[in-house]
Design a protein around this nucleic acid. Sequence first.
DNA 1: GAATTTCCTATTAAAACAGTAGGGTTAATA
DNA 2: TATTAACCCTACTGTTTTAATAGGAAATTC
Lengths: 136, 136
Amino acid sequence: MLSKKTKYGLKALTFLAKQDKKEPIPIADIAAQENISQKFLESILLTLRRTGYLGSKKGKGGGYYLIKDPSEIPMTTVMRVLEGPIAMVSCVSLNFYEQCEDCPDEQSCSVHKLMLKVRDSALEVYRNTTLADLLP
Amino acid sequence: MLSKKTKYGLKALTFLAKQDKKEPIPIADIAAQENISQKFLESILLTLRRTGYLGSKKGKGGGYYLIKDPSEIPMTTVMRVLEGPIAMVSCVSLNFYEQCEDCPDEQSCSVHKLMLKVRDSALEVYRNTTLADLLP
DNA sequence: GAATTTCCTATTAAAACAGTAGGGTTAATA
DNA sequence: TATTAACCCTACTGTTTTAATAGGAAATTC
């Protein structure tokens, strides 16, 4: 299941992408419009800032805004930052690889085999989808 | 992340599919070979029996065995029984559909849009993969 | 310097996960 | 009939994750 963190993060990004003028939007506005706990959203946006797609400004008239064009924001990055690894098991993860301790041989493991396929298909979707594709 | 329940269930199914003779294998044997807690595996196999692909026999010489050929056991069923919905949000689930309570309009929801794609791609993998494809 | 808004650190409440423990029932075999 | 092994049920436990909440520091504007 997708975490609410990711869900809210995606909604916030979409909200920012929909703005005509690219001036900062306060967290409070996004939270109110999208029905999200403000404090929770605060930490999510802070996390998202690490992607480099999001800028912020403090003080009055401050808030969050997109630095890049929505079409330049791929879902691979967004999902990895918010949800973590795209792979369902660490032994098939590209960015978070770890060996399974209970598995003697990766090559002959049925779970590995299946999850490799699933990862590839998910990755293809995320790589070919940008924030622009999610706008109405 | 994939739950250990699903992981162990897949390993058990593969183990049964690898047997030359299709005679019953005791839970204890599978648990020992695959490094799984026996009691935990017991409940997993009980769950898997509901798919109709797995048969069991009580008493001495008893155990679990596959009823169908591995090539007739699709991953869609296995994953749904063990892991639950294939969709990452309930509003795009085929078998477990539920409306999101915080979302006013599904059609214009960016999360919905993205997760629909992800579900479709995962579904294609699971539909086109049978237990036979996971054997070494 | 007062108000606004982001930034950052803790803490918490609830749920899910991964078992563990135990016991009793049923069915098949030898 | 004794043994074996699946079946089925309850309940508890420890750990981790999730989804927040609380409080204050730092930066910016007017």
